[in-house]
Design a protein around this nucleic acid. Structure first.
Length: 828
RNA sequence: GCGAGAGUGGCGAAACGGCAGACGCACCAGACUUAGGAUCUGGCGGGGGAAACUCCGUGCGGGUUCAACUCCCGCCUCUCGCACCA
């Protein structure tokens, strides 16, 4: 397609002007209302993709709009620049992660510039630089001091070949994603943040996040997974050990016929020696644990278990029950031990049937013929049977009574359990923030003193791809002295999960160059929470939950005043091509650079905003892009044509009033209706697609005007000027250029957003819908303020209405002022 | 299995309970042209009709209402998230 307008020249020159005039530098005026508009910062992978283009087009349109509405808008951008790909590049291509990252950032920054995004680059934040990550270390020390950071042994995915821990998502079908060798579970020490301390708060505050999509709130709610029940202790026969179980069904306590423990439960080490079958049991545990790593992605398979031979005591009946190990028991949830009630729990039922364990019914269904034990587990409501003193109680009532009894006997208590687990932040990797801890023979685990921060990530390390983290091999890094006793000591060589970096970067943007603290509390008070956060839904849980946790923890540390980081969240939909997500492997990627080269940044931005609502998926369509391009081309054509004609009278015209001529009056009304509707679309729900559709309508309406007619010229000038103002958040370059052609001097960004004038929207006649029994029968053009009687009179005079009323009796009429008349009729 | 969201022309999509399909793409016709894959004008849910007009139509089945894409009840399908969480 040939060039419809010289977008390249226009975009370059407008971008130069923005730069020259520092148009995007934050105007931070005391007392001025503020708006913090933030898009999720990218990982600098090397090139931006269409997902970024969409994310940032949405954010930029909003930032520009809010600025025109008179806000001081904080609109920053930075780089989530620690992470594994940089390290892989080092291993595979021999380029240092720092250099690789630096080059990628430079290139992507240029790409973002070409899109004309209004970032204040003087506030750029790059997480892999010491002036950023030193504050990671500083926060870590604060958390450590408060007991929020701790070290604990856990079972982790371990690759024997790479000698490193793998995250769950890096284990593919039981094999290491990189070297394809088997992954095993291995007990390892790792640092954790005590996010579970905040589980309740994080959950309870969710309903307050009204600016968040329901979907994301629900996902977080499920992730935190609150569940109310009881902890009940079963004594181990012949041992002082008690096994606590967590259950949501204490009402079924009398139906317990066995107890099941997770195979990796640490207590087994202590009680297994009691077993007569310790050999077989140990062998079983090994098999299960091995299988678990290799079937990680599979459906929950066959339940398997083994009787340990150990016996436990029922806390109320005193009965002796077998202790089984079961592969289906999750060690990290609850207490890692469950009571087996096969009559009223599907899993226990399946397990009991398989191993011939007794099934004891204790809840009688309300409806007698309901199928129940022993054929299947009955999990519905009922009343208690075979439950001693509790017989006859409704099971809901029994829950409380039984727990009370247990409390009296010191055998249990009410308990709330969360699914959420503590956040493991240790990574056996190089390209991340060093954890500021030193291990000393005599003093143990010693935090690096604040005054010695940052612990710099050394550059001169070897990237072999073998032997785990290069830091482990870097003597000059790990050999140090104990801050306490000055004896030789060893540094922690693990680095932090990169989610740590992104959990507070939005705070750093408020005060990005502060060297004495991560940010000023007073400045943060002005900007936090972020007014609108925009990004992909893939971060609905991890990043967003970690950031919420961080913010709350910082509040408790007195570092910030606000408990929540993001007031409103917009999760943009994916960019699809041919019905599926763009990916290199599918070969359906669209390259933003090529698009910009062919159509210009304005077209690319306009199309991505126009083609679907921001929160829905966007189907990329090469042909449809040209629609956006043609619109801009037509606009360019009309305005340049008009600017040529009106030379000599380019000074701003007085506001046109359209009085007299009905055509002009209707054009004027259209102009102001467009202002009203575009503003409404943006304010109500960021409906940028419909806002742009209205701008297209306005252009269509203005195109019908005749600029040769001097009477119309001033009206058209007002119309096009308004159109450019309204369009500027979406297609800022062309808007700015044409705005200049119309004789206006300033930056559109600094212009106030237009206001719709009521009196301008008054039309002489508007269409009234006339229905008969709810069916459209006529549309009459009549004065908007016509009253009921006149409207009815007009309607009854209409041919079509008369024809449809033949043989009918008018029963009543429904009149909606300014809109509609519905005649309700019945056959005579 | 649990949870959430979505089903509207050939396509992307619009529609405070009040004209279903705005706007755009594709398509068709016409204009301008040596040419048109550029641009401009018009048409464009389906059936019937020469037309005026008329009937049907928002996944399916009910309901509320003068009026339902929209609200309520029951299904079906698809997408996403979680998934042996006791």
């Amino acid at each position: 397609m040939s060039s419809l307008y010289p977008f390249e020249e226009i975009e370059t020159s407008v971008q130069e002007r923005w730069k020259r005039e520092n148009a995007f530098t934050l105007k931070d005026r005391p007392g001025q209302k503020t708006f913090y508009c933030l898009e999720m910062f990218p990982y600098p992978s090397g090139r931006i993709h269409m997902g970024h283009v969409r994310n940032y087009s949405i954010g930029d349109a909003l930032a520009r709009y809010k600025r025109m509405r008179g806000f001081d808008v904080l609109h920053p951008m930075g780089w989530d620049s620690f992470g594994l790909p940089a390290e892989n590049a080092a291993i595979q291509r021999g380029i240092h992660p720092a250099l690789w990252t630096e080059q990628n950032i430079a290139h992507m920054k240029e790409q973002l510039g070409r899109l004309g995004l209004s970032y204040d680059w003087s506030r750029e934040v790059t997480t892999c630089l010491p002036d950023y990550y030193r504050w990671n270390q500083w926060f870590f020390l604060k958390f450590y001091e408060k007991g929020l950071a701790y070290k604990k042994e856990g079972l982790l995915n371990w690759c024997d070949s790479c000698l490193t821990v793998l995250a769950n998502e890096q284990v593919e079908e039981g094999l290491c994603w990189r070297c394809k060798s088997p992954v095993t579970l291995r007990p390892m020490e790792q640092w954790y943040l005590r996010i579970t301390d905040y589980a309740r708060e994080l959950l309870d505050a969710l309903p307050d996040l009204q600016g968040w999509p329901e979907k994301v709130r629900v996902m977080q709610e499920n992730w935190i997974g609150k569940s109310e029940g009881a902890e009940i202790r079963f004594a181990v026969q012949g041992s002082p050990v008690e096994l606590p179980v967590f259950t949501t069904r204490p009402d079924t306590l009398f139906g317990v016929t066995f107890v099941t423990i997770a195979p990796e439960h640490p207590v087994l080490e202590h009680i297994l020696p009691l077993s007569r079958q310790k050999e077989e049991t140990a062998e079983f545990i090994r098999t299960v644990l091995h299988k678990r790593t290799s079937d990680r992605n599979a459906e929950p398979g066959e339940k398997e278990g083994i009787d340990t031979g150990i016996r436990v005591v029922h806390p109320l009946t005193g009965d002796t029950l077998p202790l089984w190990i079961g592969n289906f028991v999750v060690a990290s949830y609850g207490t890692g031990v469950v009571m087996g009630v096969p009559a009223h729990d599907e899993r226990d039922h399946e397990f009991a049937r398989k191993y011939g364990l007794p099934i004891k019914e204790v809840i009688a269904p309300l409806v007698a013929h309901e199928p129940h034990a022993p054929e299947m587990a009955y999990t519905g409501p009922g009343h208690l049977v075979h439950s001693g003193a509790f017989n006859g109680l409704s099971n809901e009532l029994a829950k409380g009574k039984i727990v009370s009894e247990l409390e009296t006997r010191g055998k249990g208590s009410r308990k709330v359990t969360f699914r959420l687990r503590d956040w493991g932040i240790s990574r056996q990797r190089y390209w991340g923030t060093p954890i500021p801890i030193v291990y000393c023979e005599s003093c143990g685990t010693v935090p690096v003193p604040e005054s010695e921060l940052p612990v710099i990530l050394p550059r001169d390390v070897a990237f072999t791809g073998k032997g785990g983290s290069p830091l482990r091999e870097s003597e000059s890094f790990y050999r140090t002295t104990c801050p306490n006793c000055q004896a030789p000591a060893r540094r922690e060589t693990d680095t932090m999960d990169t989610f740590f970096d992104s959990s507070w970067y939005f705070l750093r943007f408020t005060d990005p160059t502060n060297t004495s603290e991560p940010f000023s509390k007073i400045t943060a008070r002005r900007w936090i929470p972020v007014d609108q956060y925009i990004g992909g839904v893939e971060h609905a849980i991890l990043h967003l939950l970690y950031s919420r946790f961080f913010t709350r923890a910082l509040k408790d540390l007195g570092i910030i005043d606000t408990p929540e980081p993001f007031r409103a969240l917009l999760t943009q939909g994916m960019v699809l091509k041919d019905g599926s997500k763009m990916s290199k492997s599918k070969g359906n990627v669209v390259d933003p650079d090529q698009l910009i080269a062919r159509y210009g940044a304005d077209t690319v931005r306009l199309f991505t905003l126009f083609s679907a609502p921001p929160d829905k998926d966007l189907s990329w369509d090469d042909k449809a892009v040209e629609g956006a391009y043609r619109f801009l081309g037509r606009l360019h054509q009309r305005v340049t044509e008009m600017a040529g004609l009106s030379s000599g009278s380019l000074s701003p015209a007085p506001v046109a009033d359209g009085s007299g001529n009905p055509v002009r009056k209707s054009v004027l009304a259209k102009i102001h209706e467009t202002i009203r509707d575009v503003t409404f679309d943006l304010e109500s729900n960021n409906q940028m697609n419909t806002a742009i559709a209205r701008l297209m309508e306005l252009l269509n309406a203005l195109s019908a005007g005749n600029p040769q007619d001097p009477e119309e010229l001033s009206l058209l000038r007002e119309g096009y000027t308004t159109l450019l103002l309204l369009l500027s958040p979406f297609a800022p370059h062309l808007s700015q250029h044409l705005y200049g052609l119309l004789g206006h001097e300033g930056l559109l960004l600094d212009q106030p957003w237009p206001e719709a004038r009521e009196e301008a929207m008054v039309r002489d006649e508007i269409p009234f819908v006339i229905q008969i029994n709810g069916k459209l029968r006529a549309t009459l053009m009549l004065p908007p303020d016509i009253d009921r009687a006149d409207l009815l009179k007009n309607a009854l005079e209409d041919d079509r209405i008369q024809r449809n009323l033949v043989g009918m009796k008018l029963q009543k009429e429904i009149y909606v002022p300014g809109k509609l008349l519905n005649l309700v009729v019945v056959p005579q």
